[in-house]
Simulated assay, not measured.
Amino acid sequence: MVSLDADEAIFDNSLDQLENEYLGLGYVAERWAAWETRGAAKEVPGAIDFINHVLDSGGKIAVITNGDAALEEAARGNLVRLGMRDDRRRVCILGRRVLDTQTGNPDEWQRYGYKNDKDRRRRLISEGNAVGCWSKDLDGSARASWNRPHQFVLGIGDNVLDLPKTTQADARSNGTPTLVFGKDYFLIPNPLYGSWQGNAP
């Protein structure tokens, strides 16, 4: 199982950033939703080939994004438009829901020790309880595939929060000793925005 971030790891949203800069705007949620729905993002070079290689090799992909859960189908449509082979049994896309956030689910955050908004979704997938993975299942095959435990063997993202149970402060201090860059996790440089700063040599 490979965990992938979406924006700036699969989708190149630099055109949206350029449009916002031209209009003198920062991040605006309504504009972002319209951008996602518009389907104008390009591919981060090699991302779709990599996804299809994982699928062709019998692997599975979990796209865990902090985009709104209401945009999951738009994200899937954009992936297919860019050339991803669509197979709901092996590609799950999970956006952020209120229950994923500390504000919306403080008891669970404390119980499981979540440190970022993606930790809950990673846990649900690993336990086989990520209902969103089969929410559009028409014949039961997606549910049969995802409704069982999974182990993440690789993570790819552009931000420190794409690492499990990690914060920016953790990355600055002692990092994540259980994860090895170049083996367990790959970081895609993000020239647009984000949070990443490790220990300086």
Rank of each mutant, 00 (worst) to 15 (best):
residue 13 N to S: 13
residue 48 I to G: 03
residue 184 D to L: 06
residue 103 T to W: 08
residue 168 Q to S: 11
residue 23 L to H: 09
residue 112 Y to S: 01
residue 30 E to I: 05
residue 19 E to M: 11
residue 175 G to T: 04
residue 173 S to P: 06
residue 164 P to E: 03
residue 56 D to H: 05
residue 169 A to F: 09
residue 65 T to Q: 00
residue 83 G to M: 11
residue 53 H to P: 01
residue 201 P to T: 00
residue 183 K to C: 05
residue 26 G to Q: 05
residue 174 N to S: 14
residue 100 D to H: 07
residue 151 Q to D: 06
residue 83 G to R: 06
residue 74 A to G: 04
residue 34 A to S: 14
residue 175 G to S: 10
residue 25 L to M: 11
residue 51 I to M: 10
residue 56 D to M: 09
residue 45 P to R: 04
residue 29 A to I: 13
residue 65 T to W: 02
residue 30 E to T: 06
residue 195 S to Q: 13
residue 188 I to Q: 12
residue 175 G to F: 09
residue 132 G to I: 02
residue 27 Y to A: 10
residue 113 G to K: 11
residue 71 L to H: 02
residue 46 G to K: 06
residue 2 V to C: 13
residue 42 K to T: 13
residue 65 T to G: 01
residue 174 N to M: 09
residue 42 K to M: 07
residue 12 D to S: 06
residue 24 G to Y: 08
residue 115 K to R: 13
residue 183 K to F: 14
residue 12 D to M: 08
residue 144 A to W: 04
residue 116 N to M: 05
residue 39 G to T: 06
residue 126 S to V: 03
residue 182 G to C: 09
residue 106 P to M: 13
residue 20 N to R: 03
residue 90 R to H: 15
residue 44 V to H: 02
residue 164 P to Q: 04
residue 123 R to W: 09
residue 33 A to S: 15
residue 76 R to G: 01
residue 37 T to C: 04
residue 166 T to S: 04
residue 59 G to Q: 03
residue 111 R to M: 13
residue 101 T to C: 13
residue 60 K to E: 05
residue 100 D to M: 04
residue 15 L to M: 14
residue 86 D to R: 11
residue 59 G to A: 11
residue 191 P to K: 13
residue 31 R to H: 11
residue 194 G to A: 09
residue 179 L to A: 08
residue 38 R to S: 13
residue 175 G to R: 01
residue 85 R to K: 15
residue 184 D to E: 10
residue 71 L to G: 01
residue 106 P to V: 02
residue 25 L to R: 01
residue 113 G to F: 10
residue 6 A to G: 12
residue 59 G to H: 00
residue 83 G to P: 14
residue 183 K to D: 08
residue 138 L to Q: 11
residue 49 D to S: 12
residue 152 F to T: 11
residue 80 V to T: 14
residue 60 K to F: 05
residue 64 I to N: 03
residue 100 D to I: 01
residue 102 Q to W: 11
residue 42 K to L: 12
residue 68 D to W: 07
residue 126 S to M: 08
